Computed example of a mutant assay.
Amino acid sequence: MKNILSHVNSGFIVCLCFLIVFSCSSGNTKNETKSTGMGQKKDGKHIVCFVYHRFGDSRFPSTNISLSDFEAHLKYLKENDYQVLNFSDAIDYLKSEESNKKTAVLTIDDGYESFYNNGLPLLKKYGFSATLYVNTESIGGSDYMSWDQIRKAHKSGIEIGNHTHSHQYFLNLDTEERYVQFEEEIVNSQKLFKSNLGIEPVTFAYPFGEYDGKMKEIVRASGFKSAAAQNSGVIYSGTDLMACPRFPMSESYSDINSFSSKAKMKPMIVINEEPSSLVITRNRSKPLLNLEIQADSLDTGSFQCFIQGSECNLDIREDSSGSQVNVTLQSKSSILDRRRTLYTITGKDTEGNWHWYSHLWVNPEVK
């Protein structure tokens, strides 16, 4: 389990959809509560999503994956009969009445040229699609793909997603400026994609995985069917589709054992989360996270929590019905010295499968 835990990610409106329950969040960025609905759909469909950045570029180990590791990932998915979909098609599959299949999504952020030169040929070799999230301001810059390379990747079956124009730290901006600029950048990028590729992306990824409730509403109102965050976890029918989790892959935790453990991961069904806001301030140096988790066949005695850079206090309270469990996670020390910190909880079910959920905290004061 240490290998699995070597890395680990607003609103008041709950949208109850017939047979499938999705949560939609909006509004405030503090003291928010997110209800993810009534739990998992009976078909049990879920999606494991991975995020990559650079391929075979050892200058940047924190965002790079070796080509041997990446090919090992693709080989594992092929040999174990996963359907590998782009992000948009995976969301369509999740919403559909299609039968349950092992499903994986490969996403690539930022549009580095190493993807075109090194990653894309391997995807073609194994016949897999992926979703490439591009920040349009960087296109053609040093180390970044050109419009022509993006066009060729798209024609070869790669979905192109919106990653804003500037890829900046939007949470560092004053709120009024933040939302105006965030929306303007989305609109501008969509226009650039349309004029250069002839398409407008239908999925979105938040720069650095950072957002607040209003930003999520802007993404939803812009017409995107889903948005990718950067907290770890598994997408299922109760996931907020404007903040889908992804497992990051880079040199420090991309060996095949780590990858395969994530590929086999099941969702931790969170019915309610408080707060759902990502943003922390100085008066919340050791933020408390409260979760209501659908118990079903989970073995609460196996629950573990992990916090980056700190030890974790875990409190578990089962209700009398046994249908859900209330869990509290809190860091034992201040997390204010880090910009982004993940609280993660994992646990096994009675069949031995591991389940995973994480919450991302962001301290915008750390530049």
Rank of each mutant, 00 (worst) to 15 (best):
N3F: 11
I4M: 08
I4A: 11
L5S: 04
S10G: 09
I13F: 06
C17K: 08
C17I: 06
C24Q: 14
N28S: 13
N28H: 08
N28Y: 03
T29H: 02
T29Y: 02
T33L: 06
G37R: 02
Q40V: 09
K41E: 14
K42T: 14
D43T: 05
K45P: 03
I47N: 00
I47G: 08
V48F: 08
S58R: 12
P61W: 14
I65C: 02
I65P: 02
L67R: 01
A72T: 03
K75I: 03
K75F: 00
E79R: 04
D81P: 01
V84H: 01
F87T: 05
F87R: 08
A90Q: 08
K95L: 15
N100Y: 13
E113Q: 13
N118C: 05
G127K: 01
F128G: 06
N135Y: 12
T136C: 04
E137S: 09
S138V: 10
D143G: 08
D143P: 02
S146L: 09
S146W: 06
A153C: 00
H154M: 10
E159T: 06
T164Y: 01
H165A: 13
H167T: 07
Y169N: 13
F170C: 00
F170G: 00
F170A: 00
L173W: 04
T175H: 10
E176G: 08
K191E: 09
F193A: 13
F193N: 06
I199T: 09
P201A: 13
T203G: 02
A205W: 10
P207S: 09
P207F: 06
Y211W: 04
D212I: 02
G213K: 00
K214Q: 07
R220P: 14
A221S: 14
A229N: 07
S232N: 09
S232C: 11
G233A: 08
V234C: 04
D240C: 11
M249G: 03
E251V: 14
S258P: 03
A263F: 15
V270M: 07
N272S: 15
N272P: 01
E273M: 08
E273G: 11
E274G: 11
P275E: 07
S277F: 02
K286T: 11
K286A: 08
P287F: 03
A295I: 15
S297Y: 08
L298E: 05
D299W: 03
T300I: 15
G301E: 10
F303E: 03
G309W: 06
S310G: 12
E311Q: 14
N313P: 01
L314M: 11
D315A: 12
D315Q: 13
D315H: 10
D319R: 03
Q324H: 12
V325W: 02
K332F: 04
L336C: 05
R338T: 07
T344D: 09
I345T: 05
T346H: 10
K348M: 15
K348I: 12
G352C: 11
W354S: 04
H355F: 06
S358M: 14
H359A: 01
L360C: 05
W361T: 12
P364G: 02
V366A: 01
